[in-house]
Amino acid sequence: MEQQLQQLKEEALQAIASAADVKSLNDVRVKYLGKKGPVTDLLKGMGKLPAEERPKMGALVNEVRGEVTAELESRMAALEEQAVAKKLEAESIDVTLPGTAVKTGNHHPLTRIIEEIEDFFISMGYEVAEGPEVEKDYYNFEALNLPKGHPARDMQDSFYITEDILLRTHTSPVQARTMEVKEGKPFKIICPGKVYRRDNDDATHSHQFTQIEGLVVGENIRMSDLKGTLDRFAKKMFGEDREIRLRPSYFPFTEPSVEMDISCFKCGGSGCNVCKKTGWIEILGAGMVHPNVLRMGGYDPDVHSGFAFGMGPERIAMLKYGIEDIRHFYTDDLRFIGQFRRTEG
């Protein structure tokens, strides 16, 4: 019987080794270890043995069964692994094919610029103020120290609706309106919006464009505060190593008035085609609020002072992104707008 057992073990181990897949291995298990298998038979036949041989024989049968089972399991694991590998192999795909597109749109470049400017000034404690695009002559001109017949009205030929109503030529009327609302209290605002001028549309002119203006009114607001504010703005918008310079200029609503240049962000000041070889790029106009404007807004120029600044998002976008024609902003060509999706920096 011992011999029989030994032979059985060898037979079983051989069958395990030659099983090629999970199914045939299962068959092997059923055949040798199953309820009707030879090992079970041997155990059943134990009763016929003399009592003193039974423990020895029992141990031997168990040992063989253990060995065969272990071999079976290890073989089973190997076969399963093979099967999985085969399945995975069959499932492999071409990972270089493009992914399924997530179709999203994106903002207009002017919105990108305007929001960037808004967010900077909001972080400095400014509110965003808005006003109508069709304005009264009073808010567009008179309240800004541009009485009828003022020579500076030449600078901005306008679209009138009636003698007293026109499409606003700048966002400054929002300043005048805000002063009325704030009733003498200090405030800091920026005013983004669309404006209109009587220009023929060409590469550098558009009858409709956008502006952002800022206004700070309070006690003892100084020109140095304007300079410091603009300096931070320039660095935030155009890079930390930008420098600014102020040049005297003229606007009817400010006195003194200045224009702000930044050191060229392309060449750093050595002179290139962007800065027209001057090293400087004109970015915005600014100044200290004219006392007449304060007075008309209900502020006492002896107590209050303020500064204001204004810039054109189109110009800033054109400089920043190297856009050559202002009309691109208003043709809404997806090949243009679609370029202003990704983050910078």
């Binding site: 972080s123 700070v216 140095s224 300079k227 931070r232 102020l246």
Partner: peptide, 16 residues
């Protein structure tokens, strides 16, 4: 104008 220092407005702090 280059001689003007760069400062920031000292005002009552209003949340923007």
């Amino acid at each position: 104008y280059d001689e003007i220092p760069a400062t920031l407005p000292v005002t009552e702090s209003i949340p923007g």
